[in-house]
Design a protein around this nucleic acid. Structure first.
Lengths: 147, 147
DNA sequence: ACAACAAGCGTGTATATACACCTTTACCGA
DNA sequence: TCGGTAAAGGTGTATATACACGCTTGTTGT
């Protein structure tokens, strides 16, 4: 995602879902903008970080850890394999694959991680402690909507 | 979007952006599931409703009203023109186009609108008045992040 | 040992999203 | 009037997302 969407009048919408979607787009574009010098999107950085932390994870394990669909993860890996940030090798069980960071991947993750810290800090300050805690609690509750 | 993503362990993540994205996916999949009998996604219903309420709007006007990118709107119209729910005609200014609902579009919007009411009601009850008000306030604040 | 089942994965298809770039058309100032 | 600029729109490309379907490989029960 590269989106930095233009400004639109901020009229409130009654639909909770549309409100979520717009806010999600705004936050994503904010993080993506801050991450830009690393060449990564927030989704890609998340993938790299998860690979880094769970060494030699399989695709399904990774998807479970990241709470995204297995096939989504599969597609999201493409730009990262194309630019040689991750490497996919056959796993011990012939059905599985092991995902690993390359050296370039480790470097990109480190660069992105630093920028992520800045974005995260900026958002935290923007919201303040109270709003931040509320938000995280509400988001967890909403995520629990789906089984 | 058809996604009804499977269950994943609900461990908290430190990244506000990822939390937003997951919650947004969950809420969207909830609405999409309820809307399924209408054959519409929440994004498509929103488009139909906006077209219905702003008669003969141009593409840019519609995008502004919906607070999505103009080119995104353009792409999102395709499934609806394909299934003949909306019609695009040349506008008075030769540069512009007028978007209108067909009869089938009006019927689909009515059907979807009814189901939307059910989804919205369910979410409201799930959250409760307090959380709902907090959520909408926070989402508006986050949306304002982007200019 | 073999058949049934389950687990892991990939791909076709479809939607949602936005940026960069280009074309066409209107408008405005000199 | 004409030339420059602004407005509206379309398309190429890329990412993010997930469902349906099918293939391969491991596991298990008889």
């Amino acid at each position: 995602m590269k989106h930095v969407c233009q400004a639109y009048p901020k009229t409130p919408s009654p639909c909770i879902c549309l409100n979520m979607k717009r806010a999600s787009r705004a936050v994503t574009s904010f993080y993506d903008e801050v991450l830009k010098p690393s060449g990564l999107t927030i989704a890609q950085l998340a993938l790299l970080r998860h690979v880094e932390l769970t060494d030699k994870a399989t695709i399904s394990e990774l998807a479970k850890a990241m709470r995204i669909d297995r096939t989504t993860l599969n597609r999201n890996m493409k730009p990262l394999t194309d630019s040689a940030l991750i490497k996919i090798s056959p796993g011990k069980d012939s059905r599985t694959r092991e995902i690993m960071l390359t050296d370039a991947g480790k470097a990109a993750a480190a660069s992105g991680w630093k920028l992520w810290g800045e974005a995260q800090k900026a958002i935290k300050e923007y919201l303040g402690d109270n709003d931040l805690a509320n938000l995280n609690q509400l988001l967890a509750k909403l995520e629990a909507l789906v089984p």
